[in-house]
């Protein structure tokens, strides 16, 4: 029961972090058709920027400034990089962001060194929020949940309830028409790319201090974010939300299960001694998202909430 409750709580906070990342990716993809391979690199930049800023001022300043900076970097990348590659097609754009991921990682290694930096949870939030079954739940994880939900509401409000959101939504489906109405569509694209990157940066600010802030964090997170986007249905924000939570819960609950295949499939004659039998469910946790991806693609290629099959 204890592991279940903790698995659920951690799963939700991790899932919401994943959603922060994947919402930006989904927005960018559904608008520009670009699957931003460097998205997790912007997440990493967010963590590093926050480390620098919180070192010279405080975490609270970093919480606002770092995502804005990452968003600006993203906007510059769109304006001077992606826009140039755009005429060469989507594969060229994907490859551009692929190269960018290499570049960002190497630059981060030069500027911040190859080892992890000491980016810490702010003192103010470094206490336990509540106790469940004698174990404490850190307040910072609760804070992540609050920020993520706040961001979710903010994003929803921006897209569905403001004039700017209306124009963005229109530009998603009918860019030419929106252009003819006198809106600057390339500028909208640049802003959406910037906002998407800023969301990734925000996730980095939040996650860098509970995980590790090192040059490998982008490579670790990147593939999982893609899984979220594909499983949720490419281009669907709601789908990305559901998929983030599912994957967050799946991974965190699996870690807590201390059983092997032999325990579960023992009735089939599988023993601890055999190789398959000795695989532990908890060690399977990192593989689960990818397993889910393959299963989804075989049985429901449009993703959980995707409307069209890609």
């Amino acid at each position: 029961m204890e592991t279940l409750v903790f698995g659920l709580l951690n799963g939700v906070s991790y899932g919401l972090l994943l959603f922060m990342l994947s919402s930006g990716l989904t927005l960018i993809f559904s608008m520009m058709g670009v699957l931003n391979f460097a998205h997790a690199s912007f997440y990493m930049l967010g963590a590093y920027f926050a480390f620098t800023i919180s070192g010279s001022s405080s975490f609270w300043v970093a919480l606002f400034i770092a995502p804005v900076l990452v968003g600006l970097v993203g906007a510059v990348v769109e304006r001077y990089g992606l826009r140039k590659v755009h005429p060469n097609g989507h594969v060229a754009e994907l490859l551009f962001t692929f190269g960018l991921a290499y570049l960002i990682e190497e630059v981060v290694k030069i500027v911040y060194g190859k080892t992890a930096v000491d980016y810490r949870i702010p003192e103010l939030l470094n206490f336990s929020a509540f106790q469940v079954y004698g174990a404490s739940f850190p307040a910072y994880r609760l804070f992540i949940i609050v920020i993520a939900v706040g961001m979710l509401i903010g994003l929803w409000f921006l897209l569905k309830r403001t004039r700017a959101g209306l124009i963005i939504q229109a530009a998603l489906t009918h860019p030419h028409m929106v252009g003819h109405l006198g809106h600057n569509v390339p500028l909208i694209f640049m802003m959406v790319f910037g906002i998407g990157c800023a969301l990734a940066g925000l996730a980095g600010v939040m996650a860098g201090n509970i995980f590790v802030t090192d040059p490998a964090m982008a490579v670790q997170m990147g593939p999982i974010v893609f899984v979220v986007v594909v499983v949720g249905g490419i281009g669907s924000l709601e789908g990305a939300f559901v998929a983030s939570l599912v994957i967050g819960l799946l991974q965190n609950l699996a870690v807590g299960i201390n059983a092997s295949f032999a325990d579960i499939f023992g009735f089939l004659g599988l023993t601890e001694m055999s190789e398959v039998g000795s695989i532990n469910i908890s060690s399977l946790a990192p593989v689960l998202p990818f397993l889910l991806l393959v299963l989804i693609l075989i049985f429901r290629p449009q993703g959980l909430m995707g409307e069209k099959e890609l």
Partner: peptide, 21 residues
């Protein structure tokens, strides 16, 4: 067999997932 049913971005994502798996 499952991955080449789609081309384009979907194929790219599947190849990434399968490689990680």
């Amino acid at each position: 067999w499952p991955s080449t049913r789609k081309a384009g971005t979907t194929f790219a994502m599947i190849s990434l997932g399968v490689a990680e798996l």
